[in-house]
Amino acid sequence: MTTKDLQPNEFHEYYGRYIDKVDDNCPLIEAFENGKANVTDFFGTIPKAKQQFRYATDKWSIKEVFQHLIDTERIFMYRCFRIARNDKTPLAGFDQNVYIAPSAADQKSMYALLAEFEAVRDHSISLLKSLSEDDLASIGNSNGSPMSGRAAAFVIPGHEIWHMDVVKEKYL
């Protein structure tokens, strides 16, 4: 299954900006595997002197951006799992800014963030491999809008591409 399999009724248009970043011909699991390599290579090569850099006082540091990717993956895989299991309970949104301060990302080493990311990503891949295409095509309610399990999953690799592009453009 690729992003070409997604239908417009499977996600709110807001998430299209992330889903559109994923290669149309790349299968879901492959997108996660490629993303794991790309994210670890990208964040693993950022010089220590730049890791806490903010391009403006009200913006996140590079470490905080990386933590945001990890936290968002956890949330969207939870959504994917619940929806894939046909849980019709509406899933709440989350305020990404509230998560940053308690994460203490700037106090973590890049090595610790990389290890945390790899553990989360390995879990995500394992979960995706356990779900059928029918499971992933299930549609639930996320943040007040319809969302399929596969759309929730495809947001993740697109979201990381989006943020790596922002880091390249504004931080490095």
Rank of each mutant, 00 (worst) to 15 (best):
24 D>R: 10
25 N>Y: 13
26 C>Q: 13
26 C>N: 09
27 P>T: 09
31 A>L: 07
32 F>E: 01
32 F>T: 00
32 F>Y: 00
33 E>D: 05
34 N>C: 13
35 G>A: 13
36 K>Y: 15
36 K>V: 11
37 A>G: 07
37 A>P: 06
43 F>C: 02
43 F>T: 03
44 G>R: 05
45 T>N: 12
48 K>Y: 12
51 Q>R: 00
52 Q>D: 15
54 R>A: 10
54 R>F: 13
55 Y>R: 03
55 Y>K: 00
56 A>P: 03
56 A>H: 08
57 T>Q: 08
60 W>M: 13
61 S>Q: 14
61 S>D: 11
61 S>G: 14
62 I>K: 03
63 K>N: 04
64 E>Q: 02
65 V>W: 06
66 F>D: 01
67 Q>N: 09
68 H>Y: 01
68 H>L: 00
70 I>Q: 04
71 D>K: 06
71 D>T: 11
72 T>C: 10
72 T>P: 03
73 E>W: 06
77 M>C: 01
77 M>S: 07
78 Y>Q: 00
81 F>I: 14
81 F>L: 15
81 F>D: 07
81 F>R: 11
83 I>K: 03
86 N>D: 06
87 D>C: 01
87 D>L: 02
89 T>I: 12
89 T>K: 09
90 P>R: 06
90 P>T: 04
91 L>D: 10
91 L>M: 13
93 G>A: 10
94 F>H: 05
94 F>R: 01
94 F>E: 06
95 D>P: 08
96 Q>D: 11
96 Q>L: 09
97 N>Q: 07
97 N>E: 14
98 V>P: 07
99 Y>K: 04
99 Y>A: 06
100 I>Q: 03
101 A>Y: 14
101 A>C: 04
102 P>F: 09
103 S>L: 08
104 A>C: 09
105 A>T: 06
108 K>R: 05
108 K>W: 06
108 K>Q: 05
111 Y>T: 08
111 Y>S: 07
113 L>I: 07
113 L>Q: 00
113 L>S: 04
113 L>H: 06
115 A>W: 14
115 A>R: 04
116 E>W: 12
116 E>A: 04
122 D>K: 06
122 D>Y: 13
123 H>P: 03
125 I>S: 04
127 L>C: 12
129 K>M: 07
131 L>G: 05
131 L>T: 00
